[in-house]
Amino acid sequence: MNAFRFLGDMTHLFSVLVLLLKIYATKTCSGVSRKTQELYLLVFVARYLDLFTDYISLYNSVMKIVFITSSAAIVWYMRRHPQVRRTYDKEQDTFRHSVLVAATFVLALIFNDRFTFREICWAFSIYLEAVAILPQLVLLQRCRNVDNLTGQYVFFLGAYRAFYILNWIYRYFTEGHHSRWIPWIAGLVQTGLYADFFYYYFLSWKNNVKLELPA
């Protein structure tokens, strides 16, 4: 495992833990899109179905379990916790996430490595992950004033994507494999979605002012 992949995994892990701790400690989830969190839970469950069939490494298995349980915990807090659920911006979080699920599932049925249950689930999870942040980005834009932790959550998620692309470039040159185009294209789309957010995040950091997205 190269350093880019490891840093990507760590920023990914950190983003989820930041969000979970924010919700746990403050008992609020304002500014957090429940739809995005549910999409991520679906992404993790669909992709990590191989947890019990294919063993890669202890590291991989532990990380998979952590990602599934932490995103399930976030969704549970937002749906069930008596205090947290009341702070959810339901009226603002209106993105039609079922459309994303349906569209990416159809895409996975058409473009996959093999037409098997596992491979379709894998391709579906890759496509869905690429667009799962959309409800969150829309919600951030509606709320305008982004609180620090939510901003950091999206920042770390974006950093994870950037590191993964560096990881693929590194692997392309150091390993003899030919690239899989499904994660490449989906990964580039996914990283591109953060470009706008990164720009405003950088500005707010440089000018040392609170992050505010344009309407």
Binding site: R5, D9, H12, I56, S57, N60, M63, K64, F67, D113, W122, Y164, N167, R171, E175, G176, H177, H178, S179, R180, P183
Partner: peptide, 10 residues
């Protein structure tokens, strides 16, 4: 050389 990259990432 022609093998596809393994699915060993998260």
């Amino acid at each position: 050389d022609c093998l596809p990259a393994p699915k060993d990432e998260l």
